[in-house]
Design a protein around this nucleic acid. Structure first.
Lengths: 351, 351
DNA sequence: ATTTAGCACTCATATGTATTGAGTGCTAAG
DNA sequence: CTTAGCACTCAATACATATGAGTGCTAAAT
């Protein structure tokens, strides 16, 4: 049964029930609908309609003498067809704009801050995925001497990401010599993808470096680590304590299990997986999500872009009874602003 | 009244009550003490002793018909005089040693991992303070060209910490010229403390750089940021969901408030403040802590060192009814291992 | 053919009441 | 000084009852 096959009145009743339920978290009765929907019919009429809506699977009844609650199918229809655009509040606009103009220079800190603000504005916990840069290549490598046993390895990728690391060598090496090793390594590795440094290249480098091949090991190790961290980026959770403001999470044991589940990086990535490669806003409702643990939760996810390709995700997680339209607008506005900001930050390539 | 002024029997009774209460979380009655303490006296005798111990302030009674519960003073006596050393389990030793040998190269990730493991082993939430490096000076500065409008700024401190940042300039600058600017900046700033770059030095640099003084602004900005992050380092919270396993935190609203309180970086730093500059293990019990919010919590904190001075803290937070002896041993063993590891990592200075 | 007033019925929730039992302090005997 | 005995306290638990929001169904009204 498609939602549009229902008559106008049923749809208005469904929408009214969903919106009321989202607001109050209490099952909605026929009397309340009669008053709030503005249809001008009595509660008895609404009752008949509600019984039909339940039969068709749009509503559910927790127990005989309770009001109705939207089903997952009902929420889906609401999100796809019924919900009307939410107007952002002045606070939403102000806080988002303040963030966008704060010009935090470090990308990671900026995203942490983004997650914190989204959680604050929406009132739900947020999940923020750091940029996932598949297929980055090495733009430059530098080895900078600190003393004769230590050097700083600097790695810049074609995406403009930088990694550094202090490396220690078991044998001493003079700064001037390190300089030469550095430019040699740079020449050989520049342009190669982070993931695809073949044994042949390594072999060749070892031969070229000769006596100083001992500096190679930490270099390759760092490249491997960088590749790893770009391929499977961290997902940061923030504002998880906000769950407790929601009546759905009054059960301590269930909520504890849920939070424990969300501690794991792998789990977090899976939570966000439906938004991977999906541009714009993605919403999963309850058991639509492949993860069993999210049976009773909904996730609203938005991509952000670096340059022109989507590289990361900012999301909000909560009960299926979520403020879909409000959060949708908030995430939409926020990610659009963020995209704009990031496009400036990465900047027009000049070559 | 000093704890050592009590007779042996009273002390044994007090210790038995505290240990039983820590284990069970239920007020301890005279009968249980008579059986567990192994004193071979009847519960009536114990009752008389307990009444006195309460009068003297070592015990408290939640209500007339309940058993006794240790007072803050009681816990303090336990921690200072009564508690016996806890033997670490094989699991504790294994996990700690595995961590110490995992050789995570990045210091920050290593500390994150440390906090996670301490939380797992102890069963309480952990707070981990990143290294606080007061009075660091600049060891070297490098500006490495990426393209004509971008360069990577690399900052190494005398403590061997590295910061980098991509900087954009509004005017183009040729790599060769940037190279010269770089060595000029390095010469002028090298050796200066991060916090104390005087306006005079800045003025002088501006004059020396002449047409290229526009690269100076991001450089100084990064130094300010680095100084800031070293002076007031981040404190990472982990395993907060473990609070829910403790009966003390069954009250959702109180726990929510507590968790919200712990979200704030400033609050976290204050939580750890009693351990600042205090070598070894520090314990605060309930209202001993200056923070009102910790009235009902205890904190066990251990320093870790970089080189030979304490720079950071690993701590565990929980109810006053905490496994003081177990956690004490766990943190002690862990931080000692960590210190050993870090002393190798920083290495013997060679100049 | 719809709509609606009326009414009996359901059932989660709240409130009130009785029961239970762990633990106490006190007294008097050992 | 120790302990058996006992009356007393009070949180926790269980149970019974009342309340009321909401329902489905029927029959009359539109």
């Amino acid at each position: 049964m498609k939602i549009m096959d229902l008559n106008e009145r049923k749809r208005r009743i469904l929408a009214a029930i969903i919106e009321t339920y989202i607001e109050t978290a209490d099952p909605v009765g026929s009397k309340a609908v009669a008053e709030l929907s503005g249809l001008g019919v009595s509660s008895a009429t609404i009752r008949n309609e509600m019984a039909e809506l339940e039969e068709l699977g749009w509503l559910e009844q927790p127990h005989t003498s309770a009001g109705r609650v939207p089903s997952a199918q009902g929420y889906r229809a609401y999100v796809d067809y019924l919900m009307r655009r939410h107007r952002l509040t002045d606070l939403d606009l102000m806080r988002t704009n303040a963030f966008l103009h704060s010009r935090v220079s470090e990308l990671e800190r900026m995203l942490d801050e983004a997650g914190r603000i989204i959680s604050e504005l929406t009132g739900y916990p947020s999940l923020t995925m750091r940029p996932q840069l598949r297929g980055s290549a090495i733009r430059r490598i530098d080895l900078l001497p600190v003393d004769r046993h230590q050097f700083v390895l600097l790695l810049v990728t074609t995406d403009g990401m930088v990694k550094n690391r202090i490396c220690r060598t078991w044998a001493p090496i003079e700064p001037a010599l390190l300089q030469e090793v550095s430019s040699l390594v740079d020449r050989r590795l520049c342009g190669l993808p982070l993931t695809g440094i073949s044994p042949a290249v390594v072999e060749e480098l070892h031969r070229a470096l000769d006596d100083f091949s001992f500096v190679l090991e930490p270099v390759l190790q760092t490249i491997r680590e960088a590749a790893e961290s770009f391929e499977t980026p961290e997902v940061v959770l923030d504002g998880e304590q906000r769950l407790f403001d929601l009546p759905e999470y009054r059960d301590l044991d269930k909520t504890r299990d849920f939070l424990t589940f969300l501690q794991d990086q792998g789990a977090r990535r899976q939570v966000l997986s439906p938004a991977q490669g999906h541009d714009g806003i993605t919403i999963t409702i309850g058991s639509e999500h492949p993860l069993e643990e999210l049976r009773e939760s909904s996730v609203i996810m938005g991509n952000y872009k670096l340059g022109d390709r989507p590289v990361g995700i900012i999301a909000v997680i909560g009960p299926t009874r979520m403020h879909y339209n409000r959060v949708f607008s908030q995430i939409e506005y926020f990610t659009q602003g963020l995209n704009h900001l990031l496009s400036q930050l990465v900047g027009p390539k000049e070559e």
